[in-house]
Nucleic acid binder design. Structure first.
Length: 272
DNA sequence: ATGGGCACCTGGCTGC
DNA sequence: TGCAGCCAGGTGCCCA
């Protein structure tokens, strides 16, 4: 479900309610997520204060004095603030109850998400350590992509969805950025010029920032930290629009598959 | 090292 | 109405 903009929207939504707040207790209702939820969360977290809510790629980090909680929303997860007394529903797997009386509630029907406890530096956790640069920060550029793509025969769309290349880009925004950059998603990464990679890097920055401004993309169930949907779905040019007219030239949007994921593109506007 | 395929899990939608 | 089949915003592992 959530890519970088949805995770960032979630972070911004919850940050005011969790930063500087002390944890009263933790309720784990299901621990069989993508990795098991450690009992240390409920044993160690109460009494500690959440210093910061940060994001790295699609991961959220709730920092305490040393270490913290690493959260990932998988395909179907979301986080929101609720009054702690709110009755849990079927897929509400975890509550971090604060002394303010609000709880950070983690919901995830498919349970591809994660909630990990660490006393080490969260950014050094094996799951985060190999993430590529943040696409909205220094260190990410078309020239970087060009260098990383040298010799790669992988399709450019799969290349930019590889979190080791760039963090946080999932299927929606990969499709959208390639459309805006005018690049065919099936092109080999190693066959793209520095100039075209610069267009792609810029398209990624622009599309991710626009999506964050609109609160992310809600296709069916994404909600921000306050339970509200995002409105970037209204701006989608290609994702989910197979057979519909291209917003730029009117040609039918093509729907294909790459690496098991749906790909949408305009064969007129994305010739190469 | 690289790329392809699959598994993990639930729910919603489509079409018979 | 029921049900089978397919699809979904992610990612890590196994294999060639």
């Amino acid at each position: 479900m959530p890519e970088l903009p949805e995770v960032e929207t979630t972070r911004r939504g919850i940050a005011p309610y969790v930063e500087g707040k002390k944890v009263a207790r933790v309720v784990v209702r299901r621990s069989d997520l993508r990795l098991p939820v450690s009992g240390e969360i409920s044993a160690e977290l109460p009494g500690r204060t959440i210093r910061r809510a940060e994001r790295r790629g699609k991961y959220l980090i709730l920092r305490i004095e040393r270490g913290g909680i690493i959260l990932h929303l998988g395909m179907s997860g979301h986080l929101r603030m609720v009054p702690a007394i709110t009755a849990p529903e079927k897929h509400d797997h975890l509550d971090i109850v604060l002394e303010t009386g609000l709880a950070l509630r983690f919901t995830d029907p498919r349970r591809f998400g994660l909630a990990l406890w660490t006393v080490e530096e969260p950014l050094n956790h094996p799951l985060l350590m190999r993430l590529g640069p943040e696409p909205l920060e220094e260190g990410f550029s078309g020239d970087y992509l060009f260098q990383a793509g040298r010799g790669r025969v992988l399709a450019v769309k799969q290349f930019i969805m590889d979190s080791r290349i760039v963090a946080g880009v999932g299927n929606i925004y990969a499709n959208e950025a390639l459309f805006r950059a005018g690049i065919n998603p099936a092109l080999r990464a190693g066959a793209i010029s520095p100039a075209r990679f610069r267009r792609l890097a810029e398209a990624l920055r622009v599309v991710l920032n626009e999506a964050i401004e609109l609160g992310g993309t809600t296709l069916r169930d994404f909600r921000d930290g306050e339970g509200k949907p995002g409105y970037f779905a209204l701006r989608l040019d290609v994702y989910g629009r197979g057979g519909e007219p291209c917003h730029n030239c009117g040609a039918k949007i093509q729907a294909t598959r790459q690496g098991g994921r749906a790909t949408y593109f305009c064969k007129v506007c994305q010739k190469r």
